[in-house]
Amino acid sequence: MRYFVYICFFISMSINSQESIDASLISSTDLKVNQIVDIDNFGIFYYLKDHTLYKQNKDGTSINYSNYQLGEITTANTFNPLKINLFYQDFNMVIILDNRLAEIFKIDFNTIQPYKYISHVSTGFDNTLWVFNIDLQQLELYDYKANKTRFSAIPVQSLILDLESDYNYCWLLTENFLYQYNYFGSMISKIENTGYTKISKSDGHLILQKDGNLYFKHKKKEAIVPINLPKLLINQFLLTNETLYIYDLEKLHIYQLKIN
């Protein structure tokens, strides 16, 4: 009986031991931009440089958008390429662009009622944005066409670090927890944050950064596992399907992940 217990113990340890994700280097390319926004499935490259959003095609041609009156773009989200949103935190304003980078909507949170002081913005479904309201310390799903808040989460008590979303889910990273909500506004998971500071998502999977290293969370699993990478200065990272992009302010490194 004692030997049987030992065998079960070692089997359990093997099953629950920490796994990892392998990453194979595809290429490294010289690059000088302020911020990488996205590289989509068609190879379209979105980036920020000198207060300007650029959309560059695979053939090298590009278009751009800038609004120097509003200054620096805090974040840009191109998850819906037909409704790209640019957040100007200094002016508490969001500009919505179409796929030709023409303005189609302007949201001035200073003038709407009730007033919203926003720190983070991400894309929602239809005509909505996920926004974090600093005054109320809560996540909201805001319909900018109807000027209506469709959903308000329970206020959080810790510093907000990052916000990511797609049409189905929204992930809110705070100093204490990583929250996941569905598009109805229901919280579907809450994981303790053990030091993660940034997140990126693709197809429901997450990449998380902690202490200069990257970790992977499968959309169907609770475990967060390390990604096997060489020592890199990671200024930015993003995931498109199983392709991981890492930018160190001088080079763009492209890795292929082996996701089971």
Score class of each variant (00 low, 15 high):
I104M: 03
L48K: 00
N67F: 02
L257F: 05
I160L: 12
I36E: 04
L97I: 05
H218V: 02
Q89W: 06
N213G: 15
S165Y: 05
L178E: 02
K32Y: 13
S202M: 04
Q209Y: 10
S158Q: 12
G124D: 03
Q157V: 04
N193E: 11
G60D: 04
N213R: 06
Q89G: 10
S119P: 07
T149G: 11
H120M: 09
S20T: 09
I199H: 00
T74S: 13
I104S: 08
Y183L: 08
G60V: 13
Y68R: 02
I191F: 02
M13A: 13
K190M: 15
Q69L: 11
L208H: 09
T128M: 06
F91A: 14
N193P: 01
G71D: 06
F237M: 04
C170R: 02
H218K: 13
I199K: 01
Q113L: 10
I246V: 15
F87A: 05
D38K: 15
L244R: 02
A102G: 12
I11K: 07
G124I: 07
L244D: 02
I118E: 00
T78H: 05
L86M: 05
G60Q: 05
N241V: 11
R100W: 10
I7F: 09
L161C: 01
L53A: 04
I207S: 03
S200Y: 01
G212Q: 05
S17F: 05
I21P: 01
Q89N: 15
Y54I: 12
L229M: 03
M187I: 14
K198M: 09
M187R: 15
A153V: 00
A223Y: 14
K116D: 02
L97A: 03
G71T: 12
S122P: 03
T52Q: 09
L252I: 12
N57H: 13
N67C: 11
T52G: 06
T128R: 07
K106L: 06
K106F: 07
S28N: 10
N34Y: 11
F237C: 05
I11Q: 08
I234D: 06
N67K: 04
I63V: 15
L136Q: 14
L229S: 04
L214K: 03
N176W: 10
Y196L: 08
K219E: 09
Y88N: 01
D40T: 14
T128E: 06
T74F: 03
K83R: 11
Y167K: 15
F151K: 07
N41F: 08
Y3L: 14
T149A: 03
G195R: 01
W130S: 01
I84Y: 00
L139H: 03
A23E: 01
K219F: 10
E192T: 00
I254Y: 08
D30W: 07
E103W: 03
S20I: 09
Y247A: 01
N193M: 13
D22E: 10
K145G: 05
L159N: 12
E72W: 14
Q256A: 11
I96S: 00
F132V: 01
C8V: 15
K221C: 07
I95N: 04
L172T: 05
G204P: 07
S20L: 12
Q236A: 06
K148I: 06
K55C: 07
N235G: 12
K145E: 11
L97D: 03
Y47W: 08
G195M: 01
S14P: 00
D98P: 00
L101C: 10
N34A: 09
Q137R: 11
M187L: 10
D248A: 08
